[in-house]
């Protein structure tokens, strides 16, 4: 049975001490993206691919540190303005069941020697899913992890589940 869809919108705003070009490269370069987005401590990545262009797709399949729960992410890139904007639609699957469909918008703006970064997610959550609070927590962690990638700061501690 399906339950009514739960809709939610949230934004995460932060800054990085590197220029927009470098932040953008962490999204567009498959090797860098896989490192901060997929290959995180305790997780096993069984598949990762990225075709970064409008109309291109990204896929990752990962197993959680518990060795049991599997998650898959499928993304379609819809709008890319180099060093400024990335818009994508993505779904998340937990143990083979789709739990959400979202629209994600990344906006980058030069601020002094660094970058002002805004991520906006507009999401439809399905039954058995994580919901907006956990989703925002997950992205917040990933954007801190991205900071490590950009600055060499230590990788943040994993989120306790």
């Amino acid at each position: 049975m399906t339950a009514p869809v739960k809709h939610a919108t949230f934004a995460i705003e932060r800054s990085y001490p590197v220029p927009p070009e470098k932040v953008f490269a962490a999204f567009s370069d498959p090797k860098i993206k896989q490192r901060w987005f997929a290959d995180n401590p305790g997780w096993t990545t069984s598949a990762y691919s990225l075709d970064f262009r409008a109309g291109g797709r990204e896929h990752s399949s990962r197993t959680a540190p518990d060795g049991k729960n599997t998650y898959a992410n499928d993304t379609l890139y819809q709008d890319i303005v180099p060093n400024q904007r990335i818009i994508f639609a993505y779904t998340m699957e937990a143990n083979g069941k789709r739990i959400s469909a979202s629209l994600g918008t990344v906006e980058l703006e030069a601020a002094g020697k660094g970058t002002k970064f805004i991520f906006t997610e507009q999401a439809a959550f399905f039954e058995g899913g994580d919901g907006p609070v956990m989703r925002k927590t997950g992205w917040t962690w990933l954007f801190e992890r991205l900071n490590s990638e950009l600055t060499g700061a230590p990788v943040p501690k994993p989120i306790a589940h």
Partner: peptide, 30 residues
């Protein structure tokens, strides 16, 4: 592009609108 389909219950898709040569929007529809 269709993202989620549950027969007789739910459809989720993402779509782009272009006006002449200009992309004006990207949306998620449920």
């Amino acid at each position: 592009c269709y993202m989620e389909i549950q027969p007789n219950a739910r459809i989720v898709y993402t779509y782009e609108m272009h006006l002449d040569d200009r992309k004006i929007s990207v949306s998620l529809a449920t």
